[in-house]
Design a protein around this nucleic acid. Structure first.
Lengths: 117, 117
DNA sequence: CATCATGCTACATTATATGTAGCAATATTT
DNA sequence: AAATATTGCTACATATAATGTAGCATGATG
């Protein structure tokens, strides 16, 4: 898959708008997950693999290349880590954690009500 | 693809944590895009297709089913629209718009510097 | 110099996405 | 009321992406 560089045509969108490039990038398997799991600190390739529940090395490497080229993550002695921009991006999506818990409660409630009624 | 119901095993993750279900869901092609484009108001199937740059009906329908089952969007007389929960989810990701613009600027700067040097 | 860990690549298999055609149902026009 | 148009979608063939396992090259360690 080609890198969703803002300003260029990306998967599913022809407009070149930055938001579309970003949504393409984040819409790829495990992209959000890698971001999420990198927030807990730098990690080597194999450790990141573990954090991401044994994601296949093929996919991990593909996503890492994309995220590096787009300057969301970077490599330092400590291993892969969020770049400054990546950290800012994480701050935006951080509330998804809390939201997802409420959402899970909500869905199970509805399920249970349906079972009861 | 099976529906990433929080509490169950989802694509790429075995833990069942709500956040992993959510990241799986949002990580599917056009899921974020549909959310994004629904924020501008309810839409019929064909109008939503247009907003999403002629996304194929097959994929649109697949995503809509998932998002409905997970109570992020709902269908009313006006067509498809964000549910209450969906609107809250949108509020979380809304800042991605501004972030992506800064990001695009940043990336093009670096590109230009490389060309110059 | 043997052993082990790391960061990957190769490759075959399976799962997803894309794109076009078109159908059934309802709404609209003539 | 017959013809036409629009809508919401399904079917299906093709193309693209993800998964999973094996293992190689490199550098560190005993």
């Amino acid at each position: 898959m080609s890198i969703p560089l803002p300003g260029t045509q990306v998967r599913g969108s022809k407009t070149g708008k930055p938001i579309m490039a970003l949504l393409d990038l984040l819409g790829r398997t495990w992209a959000l997950g890698i971001l999420w799991h990198l927030n807990s600190g730098p990690a080597t390739f194999r450790e990141l693999q573990q954090r991401c529940e044994q994601i296949s090395p093929t996919l991990l490497n593909t996503r890492l290349k994309e995220l590096r080229q787009l300057q969301i993550i970077e490599v330092q002695v400590a291993g892969y880590q969020l770049s400054q921009q990546g950290a800012e991006l994480f701050e935006i999506i951080a509330p998804l954690g809390a939201w997802s818990s409420l959402w899970a409660d909500q869905i199970s409630q509805v399920k249970n009500n349906k079972q009861e009624g």
